[in-house]
Design a protein around this nucleic acid. Structure first.
Length: 486
RNA sequence: GGCCCCGUCGUCUAGCGGCCUAGGACUCUGGCUUCUCAAGCCAGCUACGAGGGUUCGAAUCCCUUCGGGGCUACCA
């Protein structure tokens, strides 16, 4: 395995939107492939047709693309080892299942789910490790004929020989499982469809996967995959290398799930998180670049990522830290990039329709809000005052501009601003400072606070003078006059 | 229940026998700055789960214990 080109795969079962845990795995798979100059394979594990849907598959493809985790082989891009949807590889699995049957590595099992359940209950009651008891391992022709007459549909079950399976996990070291606790497992359902246990192992071998980085929930199923490799006649040196990644857990220490915080990546996308921020944060969950580094680019991630630096202990997902990183990434954006990413949010919120004039104004306004937001979806609320048609002061703030002191400020501002010719934030500021602060002796926060509410409609806004410049003289004076009438 | 994995500040982590009176980041608290809000800067709080060993010396190695998690499907 040492000299082979690295081939890693991300193989989700799209039974829902890809979530945080899935993506962390995909990210590590991708980073490892890129780091080693290997191939990143994307495979869809849709053998459970009752749970996987086309919509989820399409969403998974979309999500991976959005995150920038481009795959070298897989859906949409093809490759030499396809198809990459397991539902299109049924003949492959049927072929191997039959071969295992012929080799006596596997056998037909006629036990019904109800019977198995009953026996497992009995095992549990007797304090014996529950698992298949091998009842159908050596059926006689007469017994088989009897079952067939009953119309029972057999599953194909893999025979686990006595002994143990040992393998080296790249993250956890040497792992050993006694087969006493790895019962014979089902490869093919009664209806003839393959299970994950068969498909995953067959595909990893056929697709020449060299490294399997996946969640630790699959750790204890590894002996079963290795059993399939053996039955396929794969040489020991051709087995993939395993690395079981630690879990990403929710706040309350349980595995991250729908009921436990936001897990769907689609949600983060709509909330205005940058893909590179999500990747950066997720990379820090179970891995560390060391040297007290945290804020890294995708490029740096591929350069620095090694499995040796992956942790073995689970990590809690922390939204606060994701937000902090997201804010950092937003502040690091170039103006053009920031603009491009902002537009969809402004359009969705109906703040702008997308005209050239609007876009130009947005572009000139973005610099003053860039360091004030932590998510892109905060942009519409911050820039709304520049575009809104029927402007009105927020209900909560009306009282704060309608008192006598505020009226005085507004009157004075209106009078001094009206003759102003060069409408720039510096000229506006010097006029206002001269009249309100120096002449009237008002506190800046008091004086400017009133104008802020009158002009932007809120007590919180981007810097006032820049905002006024962007809004334009006419609109500013109109709004100040309107506030005077409140 | 059985098998397996994991255990450093609230959280993510650095640490791989002496550099650790344990470092960084997020959060939180206080301060500076200040036209609001942010951003930025400074300061502070807080951790090696417990108990035994091994060693001149342990967060680092071993054992036990406790705690958390996973698996135990004709899910993946």
């Amino acid at each position: 395995m040492a000299n082979k080109k690295v081939r890693v795969r991300f193989a989700p079962s799209p039974t829902g939107d890809l979530h945080v845990g899935n993506i962390r795995t995909a990210l590590f798979d991708w980073a490892y492939a890129r780091h080693t100059g290997g191939t990143f394979i994307f495979r869809i594990e849709d053998t459970d047709t009752t749970r996987v849907t086309d919509e989820y598959i399409a969403a998974a493809i979309d999500t991976l693309r959005w995150l920038g985790l481009q795959w070298d082989e897989g859906p949409k891009v093809g490759g030499d080892y396809g198809p990459y949807l397991q539902s299109q590889r049924m003949d492959v699995y049927a072929h191997w299942a039959q071969k295992f049957l012929d080799q006596k590595d596997a056998y037909y099992c006629y036990c019904t789910p109800a019977e198995l359940e009953a026996r497992r209950d009995a095992q549990r009651a007797a304090n014996v490790a529950p698992g298949y008891d091998g009842q159908c391992r050596n059926l006689t022709a007469a017994q088989i004929a009897g079952y067939k007459d009953e119309g029972r549909l057999p599953v194909i079950r893999m025979r686990m020989p006595d002994g143990e399976t040992t393998f080296v996990d790249q993250i956890r070291g040497e792992m050993s499982f006694d087969h006493k606790f790895v019962p014979d497992f089902v490869l093919v359902r009664g209806d003839g469809s393959p299970l994950y246990t068969l498909a995953v192992a067959v595909d990893d071998i056929l697709m020449k996967v060299t490294h399997i980085l996946r969640g630790e929930d699959l750790l204890s199923s590894t002996p079963r995959q290795i059993r399939v490799y053996q039955a396929m006649g794969v040489a020991l040196e051709d087995y993939p290398t395993f690395a079981h990644l630690p879990f990403v857990m929710g706040q309350d220490n349980t595995k991250l799930s729908k009921r436990n915080g936001e897990v769907s990546i689609a949600w983060y996308r709509e909330a205005g998180y940058l893909p590179e921020a999500i990747c950066n944060y997720l990379a820090l969950l179970g891995w560390s670049p060391g040297e007290d580094r945290e804020n890294i680019t995708m490029q740096e991630l591929t350069e620095l990522f090694t499995v040796e630096r992956v942790n073995s202990s689970p990590a809690r997902f922390d939204m606060k830290k994701l937000e902090a990183i997201n804010g950092d990434k937003i502040r690091a954006l170039t103006l053009d990039d920031f603009l491009e990413r902002s537009l969809p949010f402004l359009k969705t919120a109906r703040v702008i329709t997308g005209s050239d004039e609007e876009i130009a104004l947005v572009k000139s306004a973005l610099p003053i809000i860039q360091e004030r937001i932590t998510r892109l979806n905060e942009i519409p609320a911050m820039l709304k005052f520049l575009f809104v048609k029927g402007f009105a002061v927020e209900a909560d703030s009306v009282a704060k501009v309608s008192d006598a002191a505020s009226k005085d400020v507004l009157k004075r501002a209106l009078a001094d601003l009206t003759p102003l010719t060069g409408w720039t934030h510096t000229s506006i500021e010097s006029v206002l400072r001269a009249s309100l602060i120096e002449e009237l002796g008002l506190k800046p926060r008091v004086a400017f606070g009133s104008i802020r509410i009158a002009v932007t409609g809120s007590t919180v806004s981007p810097p006032l003078f820049e905002s006024m410049e962007l809004l334009g003289k006419n609109a500013c004076l109109e709004r100040i006059s309107a506030a005077l009438a409140l």
